[in-house]
Amino acid sequence: MSTPLFEIDKLSLQYHTNGGAFHALRDVSLTARRGEVIGIVGESGSGKSTLVSAMIGLLSANAYITNGSVKINDTDLLTLSERKRRRFRGHDIAVIFQDPMTAFNPVLPLGAQLIDFQFHRRGVSKRDKRQHAIDTLTHVGIAAADKIMAKYVHELSGGMRQRAAIAAALVMTPDVLIADEPTTALDVTMEAQIIHLLRQLSHDHDGTIIVVTHHLGVIGELCDRVYVMYAGQVVEEGPVDAIYHTPGHPYTTALIDCDLVHLDETPRTLPTIPGRVPDLAPPPAGCAFANRCEKAQTRCFASAPPRVQIAKEHAAWCFRVPGHEVAQ
């Protein structure tokens, strides 16, 4: 087994708000090896977006990292100065943003931005940068890429925009490529095309791809391993097949049940998980999912559940993993 290319260790983060400290991330750990495609899944409010911001070190002013590290090739980004950290952004780690319409600058041509994003390639002429941008656009499946370079983002179609956004993240061939809700803004046919493109990328890409989404289907299509997040914590991790077939955490089970693809017949009402995500200022003492969990016991509310190793690389944070019940 190779050493991890990208590693998050026990990362905790708080937002300081008027209502007190909001614990957005608690002890989040994650590893990604070269060649792997990692999925992070969770509903809105689970801390996914905060995790993405923390990975690239772009946090809002009221966010404070209280513990943990974010390492690329054994360099901890969090201990670096802002100047040094900037070197890593784009070059070693890059994000494909959710909504390309707002992610690109509206008053600069696309090409100018793709050239700007190669800022850290020293000693390369502007012509070469331009050619590289065109090659990257072609690579993500944009025909007549040199014409697209002169266009502004509002002039492109939705699918083109999404491809351009992927190209923007790829121009520096980063080791770690993060796709933040890559298909949310798209319709079903476009979604299939983009997933196809991402899968292709994962084959020729030498680094690691991290797909962040609320949509289990996307994970199933693309990823090797999955991290399930709930209320700022990882509640289960494991290979995609294991997660789908033998989920250990009740929340994962509920998520899969809600995914319409797995329903055999059309239900009368859409399945939902009852209850709400708990308030994280301050977080509950026990398991964060306890108030919505059908299997919850008194101890689930009182103390935090342990990490239960289900199989190699498959673990869940729960007292009552099927077949691995923790004794009372």
């Binding site: 690239i56 772009l58 900037r86 070197r87 890593f88 952004r89 784009g90 070059h91 890059a94 994000v95 943003f97 909504d99 707002t102 992610a103 690109f104 600058n105 509206p106 008053v107 600069l108 700007d116 994003f117 800022f119 850290h120 923007a168 993240a169 520096m172």
Partner: peptide, 23 residues
Amino acid sequence: EHIRTARAYGLPERVVVLRYALR
């Protein structure tokens, strides 16, 4: 969002402000 993008791709603050924001 686009200012965040410029930062996320590692552009120095000078370029972000003068080229991306001011325009």
